[in-house]
Design a protein around this nucleic acid. Structure first.
Lengths: 130, 130
DNA sequence: GGGTCAATTCAACAATACATGAATAGTTGA
DNA sequence: TCAACTATTCATGTATTGTTGAATTGACCC
C-alpha cells in the first residue's frame, strides 16, 4: 500500500452512502450482497448506487461477481485494512496519539490536547528572520 | 466520534497535499510547524496551503495557534486516531480482515481473497422473485 | 425468441472542490 | 505611523464529482 492507493481509498470513503455501504457489507463477509438488495437496504436509486459501487470497486474497496441475474458485492477487507494500516503506521509513523485513540474508539475524544508553548516556538520571537 | 465526523476526516485526508501535510506534521508533535515553513517544505503556494490548512482545521485534524508573526499548526492525533478507530471498530465492527491488515501494513495486500460461491447465493438461482 | 427482472451506462444538469494571483489583515520593530 | 514580514481572504476560472431519469445490456424462464 502506497500513498496514492491509500488516497483513493480515503476518497472512496468520504461519502455518506459509501460508509453506509461498508457498514452494511462488512458483516456479510465474502458472500456480499446483491446490488438490488443493497439499494433497497440503503434506500438508494439503482443508478446512483451503481455509480458508488463502481467507484468503490475502482478504489479496490469492493469486489464483485455475478451470480445468476444478481451481482454480489463484498468488501475487500484487506484493502480497507491496508489503507488504515498505511495511515497509522507509515504516514503517522505509529504515533502514540494516533495509535492509542484508534483502539478503543467510543471513549474520550471531545477534549483536544491543546498544545502549550514550547521552547522551540518561543524562539520565534527572537528570530524573526529564521 | 460518529459517522458524520469520521466522514469529514476522511474527506480531509482524500488529497495528496493533505496526506503530505499529516506526514510532515505528525513528527513535530504538539509543537507543530509554522505555515510558512510548511509551505516551503511541501512546495506549496501560501494561499493554496492556507486553503488546505483551514479545511483540515475545520475537519478537526489540525489545531493552530499564533506565536508572534507565525501560525503554528499541529496534528490533532486524537481526532485522527478517533476516525480510524471509528472506521475499524464501529463501521467495520472489528472485522478480522480489516483489523489484521491494518496492523502490519507493509506486508501482504496484493492478493485479493476472492470469495467463493456460498449456499446463500446459490439460492438465488431458485428464488428469482425473492 | 419474447417477456421479465437485475444492473449498468448514458446524457444532462447541479453542486463542490481546486488552483491561481491579487488584495487584505495582523504582527513586529524602528 | 511606516516598512517588512507572515498568513489569510477574495475573485476568478477550471475540473471534478454527484444526482437524476431514460435507455441499454445481460441473464433467466417460459
Amino acid at each position: 500500500m502506497d500513498r496514492s492507493k491509500a488516497l483513493v481509498v480515503f476518497a472512496a470513503l468520504a461519502h455518506e452512502a459509501r460508509l453506509d455501504l461498508i457498514r452494511l457489507l462488512v458483516p456479510m463477509g465474502d458472500q456480499g450482497m446483491a446490488a438490488g438488495e443493497i439499494a433497497r437496504s440503503l434506500g438508494l436509486a439503482a443508478s446512483r448506487l451503481s455509480f458508488h459501487l463502481s467507484a468503490m470497486e475502482q478504489a479496490g474497496l469492493l469486489v464483485s461477481r455475478r451470480v445468476a441475474r444478481n451481482v454480489f458485492y463484498a468488501v475487500n477487507t484487506q484493502r480497507l485494512g491496508g489503507a488504515v494500516g498505511w495511515l497509522v503506521e507509515d504516514c503517522c509513523m505509529k504515533h502514540p496519539g494516533v495509535v492509542g485513540c484508534s483502539r478503543g474508539t467510543g471513549g474520550a475524544q471531545s477534549e483536544l490536547d491543546k498544545p502549550a508553548e514550547s521552547p522551540a516556538e518561543a524562539e520565534t520571537r527572537n528570530t524573526p528572520k529564521g
